[in-house]
Write a protein that binds this DNA or RNA. Structure first.
Length: 512
RNA sequence: GGCGGCGUAGCUCAGUGGUAGAGCAGGGGAAUCAUAAUCCCUUGGUCGGAGGUUCAAAUCCUUCCGCCGCUACCA
């Protein structure tokens, strides 16, 4: 049976334009999805947008458009960003779609039937003017000493009827989950924080609101709409046509990996498994939280005006250079800084000099000295076997890295082989062999072609467009690009196209 | 306040008991097939401070200093 793999990004909240952080999570998920496809697995890769809530309702009102019209535009913008970043999603779900509403309500009903939902009251400081609740520590003292909202609006303590989820019943079950499945939440730092959070004790969770209307009606009580997490998290099931367990996609549950930003790790690793347990469903295999990006050392913020649209970077540096940079720069899971200098450095040193140039020098030697025809694979020397051996283990080596979301380490493994390839070509010096031993020169070039093929194959998930071009230049047909295909060496005699640079060096324009 | 993380070469980081590592940057050399890219050699660290356990500690314990995260209804 073919292994199934279900990977998700968060559904992005449509209260603003997509930025580099959204692209980052999506690219990471895309790499995982593409890697599993190349491994021959049956992959379902989901992304989408989260479109309900009071903030959206208010933003639409402020823009003087209907909420639906408002979210249509922003959702389309997120989808455009995903397409621009070559995110190979199999489905793009929107929480305003009927299929999602139906699913979320079914999930609610299932959880309610289990007795895990009850009607209570949500209490808090409410500002009528802002139509919004504030927490105690957000409040400021007004001029007359009374409590005020940060906006200056007067607040009052109010009770609003609300449905609650019995989260407190799940503390022990959750702790057991973390203990028996230490890989459930990554990276480790997030895991430790979470365990200590849950150990502090869990309170029941308010899961509905009556203070706004832009949401999914609670089954059986139209006065309420579902509050954020119950609505949003359900997307991972609604895309599988839950509760229709006969649907073809239903077999993808439980999800293998939810990739999320670290701000929402808790919701995915505490609330979500608790909801699922209450509904009698399996919990996801893994949740992994990635860090934040700063820009030139500073936090991204609208007020600083340094929010980066990933599409602008792609315009200037090319898609694959950006994808590569984001995953290469800093261990996946931690925070990272995006600077012009480091982006250009990675592009020039690792893509242009190390990989691009290795490919270019090999292909031009083949073009010039072998009439552009792939030579035979013949007897291998010790050096030949050593290099090819390093290439051969890459798919398995990277699979174990990707299993634990160590995307940066997976790239480092490939770069070790690329550096070894550059050392090999220098030591073998096929340009010298041309004059002394033409047959050996051909053997060396053949080893290099096979090495590059292996490298380009395993890098496809990270840089799909460039590696497509590289494999074409190496004479590798579309059907010969999976990991399994690496077991069969290319037939000799193929004529290669004229070599063309894959990764140009980036030269910074003079500032004046 | 409570819980947790981090502090290792100029920079970014790896390294959880056994003679300090990688990449980049710096220095010297080789080669000239190639996008002037590459390869080889090399300088450089009392592993935040102090104390302790041990035959042996960056690695375990205590304490101090500095930075950061989490501390629930926030998308």
């Amino acid at each position: 049976m073919t292994a199934r793999f279900y990977v998700t990004t968060p559904i992005y909240y449509v209260n603003g334009a997509p930025h580099i952080g959204h692209a980052y999570t999506s690219i990471a998920a895309d790499v995982v999805a593409r890697f599993h496809r190349l491994s021959g697995h049956d992959v379902f890769f989901l992304t989408g947008t989260d479109e309900h809530g009071q903030k959206v309702e208010q933003a639409a009102q402020a823009a003087d458009v209907a909420p639906k019209e408002f979210v249509d535009a922003i959702s389309a913008n997120f989808r455009d960003m995903a397409d621009a970043m070559a995110i190979s999603y199999d489905d793009f779900i929107r929480t305003t779609e009927p299929r999602h509403i139906k699913s979320a309500q079914a999930l609610w009903q299932k959880v309610a039937d289990s007795g895990a939902i009850y009607l209570g009251a949500y209490e808090g400081w409410y500002a009528l003017r802002d139509e919004c609740f504030y927490s105690e520590d957000e409040l400021v003292a007004g001029p007359d000493g009374t409590k005020r909202a940060p906006t200056g609006a007067p607040v009052e303590w109010v009770k609003e009827p609300s449905y609650f989820f019995r989260l407190s019943d799940y503390q022990d079950k959750l702790l057991e989950l973390y203990e028996t499945h230490p890989e459930f939440l990554g990276p480790n730092s997030a895991n430790r924080e979470l365990v200590s959070f849950v150990k502090q004790g869990l309170r029941d969770l308010s899961v509905s609101r009556t203070s706004f209307k832009w949401g999914i009606p609670v089954p059986g009580d139209d006065a309420h709409v579902m509050y954020v997490w119950f609505d949003a998290l359900a997307n991972y099931l609604s895309a599988l046509d839950y509760p229709d367990t006969d649907a073809p996609r239903a077999a993808f549950w439980p999800a293998n990996l939810h990739l999320v930003g670290k701000d929402i790790a808790r919701f995915h690793a505490v609330y979500w498994p608790a909801f699922l347990m209450a509904a009698g469903l399996e919990v996801p295999r893994k949740v992994f939280a990635n860090g934040w990006w700063t820009v030139e050392g500073e936090k991204m913020s609208k007020s600083l005006g340094n929010v980066i649209d990933p599409r602008d970077l792609v315009q200037e540096f090319g898609l694959d250079a950006v994808r590569f940079f984001l995953l290469r720069e800093v261990p996946f899971g931690g925070d990272s800084d995006l600077s012009r200098k480091s982006l250009i450095m990675r592009n020039n040193v690792e893509l242009a000099n190390d990989l691009g140039n290795l490919c270019q020098r090999t292909l031009s030697l083949v073009a010039r000295n072998c009439d552009g025809i792939v030579p035979e694979r013949r007897e291998l020397t010790e050096e030949d076997s050593k290099l090819l051996g390093q290439v051969a283990v890459l798919p398995n080596l990277m699979a174990s890295q990707i299993e634990r979301c160590a995307l940066t380490d997976a790239l480092e493994d490939v770069w070790k082989v690329i550096r070894a390839g550059n050392a090999y070509i220098d030591h073998q010096a096929p340009w010298a062999l041309r004059k002394t031993d033409v047959e050996r020169m051909k053997d060396v070039l053949r080893v290099l072609l096979d090495t590059l093929r292996g490298i380009a194959t395993v890098l496809q998930p990270f840089m799909p467009q460039s590696m497509d071009r590289m494999l074409t230049q190496l004479g590798v047909e579309a059907a010969e690009r999976s990991f399994a295909a690496l077991d069969v060496i290319l037939p000799a005699g193929r004529t290669l196209p004229a070599p063309q640079g894959i990764f140009p060096r980036y030269v910074e324009q003079a500032p004046e």
